[in-house]
């Protein structure tokens, strides 16, 4: 494998270029995640062999195919239980679950809320592009109201799920929202999440120009990127009440929950 890019040592470079469409935000998230991991590794907190990444099915879930860690690309929605199995047997592993909003919030929603309730010592990174990308543009639980998708051809009638509010209501240590328009924040939040025990959840608002962009009239990646950027607002201490996402209005980034309670593993094994 050729090592050229500074992050290539964390990638299975023989598999690049990856499958994601031009301008897809997932690559931005993965790149930021790898820099966060690299920082931890260079600071001596853990090694590359200690990192395990797990994903289910979907565009975002394909990330694990390209990562040069112990990785698992399992079935739709079930990355979190697989990750818990890993973590309780090998507690020294840094277990990271990567998935899209369909994988984590729709089919995997039950596992998300119960692992958060347990304060299970894993980090879940949910890339939210507000649509089902891999299957070609169906409505997601995160799709804004009124948006036309291939399965809501008369407009989406359902109010979108606010994952920040949901996960924050549970016994978690860390909940943050980032956006692909601000990659340094993704990196910082993932770094912070990996610095602690217990459950950590990071929602990254992403862009899907090919599918979501097409539905809402922003087919060009740069235009969609700039549209999203215009809605983004960063707050040092955001309130949960302002975490709802309404397309066209403000999307508030920040660390919504930031605690250091004992995680499940410490309760299970003692310190």
């Amino acid at each position: 494998m050729d090592i050229i890019h500074p992050l290539d040592r964390y990638l299975r470079t023989d598999r690049l270029p990856h499958i994601w469409c031009p301008g897809c935000g997932i690559g931005i998230v993965i790149s930021a995640m790898l820099r966060a991991i690299d920082r931890h590794i260079s600071e001596g907190h853990f090694t590359q062999d200690d990192v395990a990444t797990v994903s289910g099915i979907g565009c975002t879930a394909r990330a694990t195919l390209y990562l040069n860690f112990d990785s698992a690309h399992v079935i739709h929605g079930r990355a979190i239980p697989f990750a818990i199995g890993l973590k309780v047997i090998k507690p020294n592993l840094k277990v990271i679950v990567i998935g899209g909003d369909g994988d984590i919030a729709a089919i995997g929603g039950n596992h998300l809320l119960h692992s958060a309730r347990r304060n299970m010592d894993i980090t879940v990174i949910m890339v939210n592009n507000m649509v089902y990308g891999m299957t070609g543009g169906q409505v997601a639980p995160t799709t804004p109201m009124k948006v036309y998708t291939t399965t809501t051809p008369y407009g989406n009638l359902e109010y979108p799920l606010n994952l920040i509010k949901l996960v924050s209501s549970l016994n978690t240590n860390y909940v943050a929202r980032a956006s692909v328009t601000h990659p340094h924040l993704i990196e910082r939040y993932i770094y912070n999440a990996l610095s602690r025990d217990g459950f950590s959840f990071i929602e990254v608002i992403s862009i899907c120009p090919e599918v979501f962009g097409r539905h809402i009239g922003f087919r060009n990646p740069v235009e969609l990127f700039n549209k999203l950027k215009s809605m983004i607002k960063f707050k040092a201490k955001p309130s949960i009440d302002e975490s709802d996402i309404v397309w066209g209005k403000e999307i508030v980034l920040g660390e919504y929950v930031n605690e250091y309670k004992s995680g499940f593993i410490k309760l299970l094994y003692g310190s």
């Binding site: 697989f82 818990i84 199995g85 890993l86």
Partner: peptide
């Protein structure tokens, strides 16, 4: 776990952790 689906997937994960 919260259901049988999570249970067997956790079992698969644990098996890959060596147990």
């Amino acid at each position: 776990f919260e259901d049988e689906i999570a249970s067997i997937n956790a079992v698969i994960g644990a098996s890959w952790a060596g147990a």
